[in-house]
Amino acid sequence: MGLNLERLRVLHAVASTGSVVGAAAVLHVTTSAVSQQLARLERETGQELSERQGRGLRLTPAGLLLAGHAAELLAHAERVEASLAEHRGVVAGPLRVAAFATAARGLLPQVLRELRARHAGLEVGLAELEPHEALPLLRRGELDVAVVQDWAADPLAVGEGLGRRELLEDRFDVAVPADHWASGRPSVEVGELAGEEWISWSRGQICHDWLLGTFRGLGVEPRVAHTASEHSTQFALVAAGLGIAVVPRLGREAVPDGVRMVAITPVAVRRVFAVWRLATSPRPAIGAALTALDQAAATLQP
């Protein structure tokens, strides 16, 4: 029995996304093309690999078994390709990078400029994605490197098969109106802010989670008056005297008139790190990207 690697890739995509539609989106093909490849794979194996379930389908036990082996075979093929690229020793080809919003703004422009200047044959593309969006794409091979974040009380689990490189620790400050009682102080204790009205990031974003987790740890439910995912909107609301906001330093926009930044004690930080598939580690392009990220991050450390 000869198994076609591309058809195994289709089966793996169906297994990892849970549907033909999801696999088609991942592979950038039509749903009919996915179905045809599955049918051909069934003929090659002589076994039913999928069965109808309502309007969709699910993998049979044989399909799940083969999908598990497909993941191993695809990872092995990727390691072979990476080893060949290492042997060639040229930093070239496509490199797909993702980063969360403030890293995309505050870190990646310097990284991309450096990679372009040093490696003319490298074709780098950047996508702005939050960690929960980037990691599944990275595992499926749609991305090569992801810049993600977490904070110590809520570490991000990256899972097996992925490498992790610490880049920097990024501090949070509190943005207050110019006439706020804390505006002239160099720092403020977290507990002193317990009674404030907050302008928070959207639910699920790290600063929002930090706000809830920190104050609930003090036995206080923070009063979130407004939510906004853009620095400029948060600053405008703060300047209007409608509340205060936690704002990270990385990628921070210019602070407008009417807003003052005050340090928080104990120091509040998020951890920023790069993640990639270990199977691709030998690729010179991966090494070049990690080196450029390290160098750019070093210029931003306090």
Rank of each mutant, 00 (worst) to 15 (best):
V80I: 08
G159I: 11
A13R: 03
E197R: 13
E123V: 14
R105I: 03
W210R: 04
A225R: 15
A263W: 04
A77W: 11
A296N: 02
A157T: 14
A127H: 15
V21C: 02
D294R: 02
V90I: 10
R249P: 00
E169G: 10
L250K: 00
L193G: 00
V158H: 05
E51G: 08
A236V: 13
A263N: 05
G63P: 03
H132P: 00
H119N: 06
P177T: 12
I286M: 04
G195H: 09
V247G: 04
E6G: 10
V10T: 08
G243S: 12
L278I: 12
L278T: 01
V267W: 11
L115A: 05
G213C: 01
E196Q: 09
A274H: 11
A194T: 05
A298S: 09
H119T: 07
R164E: 00
E166G: 03
V220D: 02
L193Y: 08
V21N: 05
A175Q: 13
G46S: 14
R55V: 14
E72D: 06
G184A: 03
R105N: 12
F172E: 12
L8F: 08
F215V: 09
H12L: 05
E189A: 06
G217H: 13
L293S: 02
R43L: 15
A182H: 14
V255N: 05
F215H: 01
R7N: 04
V14W: 03
S281W: 00
A245K: 14
F215C: 01
D173P: 00
G258F: 12
R43H: 09
L135Q: 09
E78H: 05
G184N: 06
W198N: 10
V80K: 11
G93R: 10
Q110N: 03
L115F: 02
P155E: 14
A92R: 14
A175C: 02
R249Q: 04
P222H: 02
R249M: 06
G287C: 03
V176P: 13
T30S: 13
G191Y: 09
A24P: 09
T280R: 15
P131K: 10
S83V: 13
D257T: 11
V111P: 13
T233D: 15
L211M: 06
V145G: 07
P284E: 00
H69Q: 15
L73R: 02
D294I: 11
V275G: 01
V247T: 08
L237E: 07
V259K: 08
A120T: 10
V224P: 06
A134G: 04
V275Y: 12
H12W: 00
E86N: 09
F235W: 09
Q149W: 04
A23L: 09
G159R: 07
I244A: 11
A85T: 06
V14T: 10
T31E: 04
H132T: 11
A99C: 02
V148C: 02
T227N: 13
F172A: 05
R165T: 01
A98Y: 07
E221G: 05
